[in-house]
Design a protein around this nucleic acid. Structure first.
Lengths: 240, 240
DNA sequence: GCGTAAAGTCTACGGCGTAGACATGTTTCT
DNA sequence: AGAAACATGTCTACGCCGTAGACTTTACGC
């Protein structure tokens, strides 16, 4: 991916001056910055071209089309996630990944819709490889921990399902910025007919201060203790 | 919303012949049908207008813009979900809702992206009311079961989070139609570099037959048993 | 320097959401 | 019945979008 020609004149600082050669990395990074700052809708070929000071059509050298561009952004974000498949304490590692991914989502909230919906239109085997890396690594973590491959898959599904669900949940309640969160939120709630939504309205204050990390951690605890069961079972009955 | 003039001449059969008056219901139903059969992208104002034999602009009498139309479709789908907040067995009810929602998602897979992403751009209090109904009803179910309101919210979040996560997971693996599922899926997997994705590739056969209902049920069981803890605790210590 | 391939540009097409003015149909009041 | 008020549907037009295809410019190996 990286050219390695050193001696001839070549600007090595990537995002330095005015008109370096484009690269897939530059394109994707700029795209991500755009999405982060102005939302998914702002990421159009024309706009991104403008952002890079290039003709929009030049982007097609680095992504086959807009969908592929979105996939690239997704991949880029997921690459920020560090997983240690060799951690001897698989539960601790899963917990850490969960918190890391949560923070990643909070850092790139506008990318989350991509994270959850892009895979819906792409068969597993055809997804960007960077997207499948976490899956492979977690499978590795779990099988090393003693799970049968099929069980590892089950655990992964339950775990990742819960994790993604939590992230979606949390982002849904976070929309307005934290400062005026309480006021705006209550204002929103006030719109609800009191007759039909008594409990939801009553929860206004509680909704306002949502400790996502704690809530996630608690859920993970419940899940992990439940999921570890087959492991203990197997260990006590066989001796392989 | 509904006019209640009965005695004068008025066609009561709604979706009868060729050129009845439009209505929000007709518009949304047609929109849903379109999404179900051809996907989200097919739902454009122009296409929907064509489908209804009307000028596209006429739709704006029934939805403020395209986003509102999508919200309407979301609401319509969620209305298919029946919740019984008075069920004395809250765990059984939550389990039933989970399976119902799963089936709903399988029936309208193209709507699932809306279900999970639309709320991300709308503060809770401003969502379509039909969207908040499940939340309110589940809160009702849980408080009736003895949960403090704040705890009910916690339980709801963990439960719904897991549920949505599972649905996303399952749909991601379902993309190709079940008939040639195995072949295509393995073909997809075959593309993966063997060096980097050994465990994922090895799981091909297991991935192919995914019993979503069972997997969901098992996850719900784990979660419910963990979530019920505070309830038992409160019951044994106080007597109110 | 020259040929070749890569990178970037230009033009153009069809489709999109929707603002605003307008036409048509229906209901209500007298 | 007639008129006034209103709801419903239509037309035209604008600026944006993704991207196909032909082209020009640049960079690099010899």
């Amino acid at each position: 991916m990286e050219t390695v020609q050193p001696p001839t004149k070549r600007d090595s600082s990537p995002a330095s001056g005015a008109k370096t050669r484009l690269s897939r990395e530059i394109v994707l990074t700029t795209a991500l910055a755009l999405v982060d700052s102005e939302g998914l809708d702002a990421l159009t070929m024309r706009r991104l071209g403008h952002e890079l000071g290039r003709d929009p059509m030049s982007l097609y050298r680095y992504a086959a089309n807009r969908a592929a561009l979105l996939d690239g952004v997704t991949e880029l974000v997921l690459n920020e996630l560090a997983i240690f498949p060799n951690d001897p304490d698989w539960q601790a590692q899963l917990r850490k990944i969960a918190h890391d991914l949560r923070l990643l989502a909070l850092r790139h909230p506008n990318v989350v819709p991509l994270l959850v919906t892009r895979p819906l239109s792409t068969p597993l085997g055809l997804r960007p490889l960077g997207t499948l890396r976490p899956l492979e690594q977690i499978l590795s973590l779990l099988t090393d921990a003693g799970f049968e491959p099929a069980d590892a898959l089950h655990v992964y599904r339950a775990y990742y399902g819960f994790l993604y669900g939590h992230i979606l949940n949390e982002l849904q309640e976070f929309i307005v910025d934290p400062e005026e969160n309480e006021a705006l939120l209550r204002l929103g709630l006030h719109r609800l007919p009191a007759r039909d939504f008594p409990r939801l309205r009553a929860l206004g204050p509680v909704l306002a201060d949502y400790d996502g990390a704690a809530e996630l951690d608690q859920g993970i605890s419940i899940l992990l203790s439940g999921l570890a069961a087959p492991l203990a079972h197997a260990e006590s009955s066989t001796d392989d």
